[in-house]
Design a protein around this nucleic acid. Sequence first.
DNA 1: TTGTACGCGTTATCAG
DNA 2: CTGATAACGCGTACAA
Lengths: 349, 349
Amino acid sequence: MTTRGRRDGRVTIAEVAALAGVSPGAVSMVFNGTGRISEATKARVREAARTLNWRPNAAATALRTSRTRTIGLVLSSSGPLPEIGAGNVEFISGIESILSPRRYGLLLNFQLAHQDETEFYRTLTEQQRMDGVILTNSVIEDTRFALLRELGLPAVLVGTPWREGEVDFIDADPPGAGIPEAVEHLVALGHRRIAYLSGPERFVLPRIRRQAFTETLTAHGIEPRAILELPYSPQAAAEATRALVKEDDRPTAFIYGTDHMAIAGIRTLQSMGMSVPRDASVIGHEGLSIGEWIDPQLTTVQRYGWQRGRAAAAKLLEVLGEEIGEDVPLERPALLIRASTGPAPAEDA
Amino acid sequence: MTTRGRRDGRVTIAEVAALAGVSPGAVSMVFNGTGRISEATKARVREAARTLNWRPNAAATALRTSRTRTIGLVLSSSGPLPEIGAGNVEFISGIESILSPRRYGLLLNFQLAHQDETEFYRTLTEQQRMDGVILTNSVIEDTRFALLRELGLPAVLVGTPWREGEVDFIDADPPGAGIPEAVEHLVALGHRRIAYLSGPERFVLPRIRRQAFTETLTAHGIEPRAILELPYSPQAAAEATRALVKEDDRPTAFIYGTDHMAIAGIRTLQSMGMSVPRDASVIGHEGLSIGEWIDPQLTTVQRYGWQRGRAAAAKLLEVLGEEIGEDVPLERPALLIRASTGPAPAEDA
DNA sequence: TTGTACGCGTTATCAG
DNA sequence: CTGATAACGCGTACAA
């Protein structure tokens, strides 16, 4: 209803200093815990600040210190519009759980498909709106790490870099964790025709998982029934599933790249007259809570999105020289066996 | 891997000016489209800026102009930890779709349950990290609007204010839209015992919807079978549903406050041996795409989260004096009839 | 503890 | 019409 003009009667450090009867510098020291100020003076300064409702102007502080107390989260969209995946909800909440108590802000940044990457990161850096960034969705031949190093913008990658040593990162240990367990689980249940439907292999993650999938299966002397690179969407998962089921030696088990894809897969199987897990088993990847509420409950690889967010934020703050003073564990992704997996159908035993 | 020190060889406007052979002021004018600068000079300045990879330092600009080109989104958590609802995913994406092309940033702010509200908003204001905020989750007797007006921080509420005239807002028109349609739909299907399970009535939204629910039902001479105030969680919805089903005259239809609650409701009904929609109908609220992929597909009130985000962001930018130059429509919430609703069970006809 | 220079663009005033 | 000059926004940090 009103737009804010300049200054607007906003209180400055000088007024606080005047009220407390000290210099502006002293007020600054009190608020930053620097310098040596007597307790009595500190008390007067705090009182004055409270009276005037003063807090340091973030822009002035940033300008002077080159520190914004803001970190950026870079989310990449596959299309021209910003989009957040369902799995990012817990992730972002986790990040905030670390930042918020330390009075750091989180700035969202979408790298859209059509945008020039170099330009994008240069702008992030030069504008100096953030002290560092959390990167997601690493791709093969990712050039961002070298670029950010050159630009001097601290970064932490969530996930596996395509090549080590270029960037700080946090990740599952080992990167493909969860997939071998999923495969073992299915094999133990008697499955031999297992399909793997995941995201585009220009991303590092689907590729690593696919390798883990293949290796584990091969160790059992089993060939992958199918390996499909799909967009991360329920639609794509549904279509691919449908196509697979129509083939002669249809898979008896399906592993998907995300929970939403898996849910769409279940639905597709059911709509084709199959029962899950009686006629086919399904495993997702993420561990979203919604998986508990579908029928059958989704067996999935729990990725601990909340913990991942916390670990990423903590790592970045560490890189920025901040003391965390708290253990921020990231559990190994684990297979969460619910009800969408079961023995392979009899005719396949 | 390296923390950023001060200045760090960062380019300043002065260097660009020097390279272009003009004054810093001229560079500023070129970049802001102010002042009168010849085309030739403009070209030289741009070229120099490109060569040096210079972009205006956001802190310096903010300090000088009191404009940060950042807006804040305030999300409130019911607990001590930050949490984002699934419905916010599309909402945030929508906000970004407006901000991002206009080079505005989005800063996330979580108002946690234990935090002092006044302190929280005072800090937002005084730190001057953002030009305005988008507020969500309005409550009865909401004191935030008056506070923000007093503080001079522009705000736009998403949803219905508990009292008009205190704050700019965007909302469904009318606020309860979708609920009457849902009720009509159920009544037409022969349902007479309809339960309404929504969020806490300290929030304005569940209350408005409950009123719409009751009124529409009453117009048909029907009493609400049950009206329950629950936390916005699948667990709470599941428990409440279970309890209702165990009662003598169990409801034949259930309307939930969110899609996730409705999905949990469906699951609960099914786990109790009931078939949806044969034995009971279920309606959600939000319109999440996941609703298409459960069995039965969820009938729900489509809230157009994406559009809501866009409308909120556009409204706030307008308040801030920005030209939008684009129509940002917000459709009326509509009942999206899928498969979780059907005729009332025979014994109730 | 204080004085003061400084970080970096913006804008009002002034000159050509 | 084109552009330079210089004050200014506000907190921080170093020398005094």
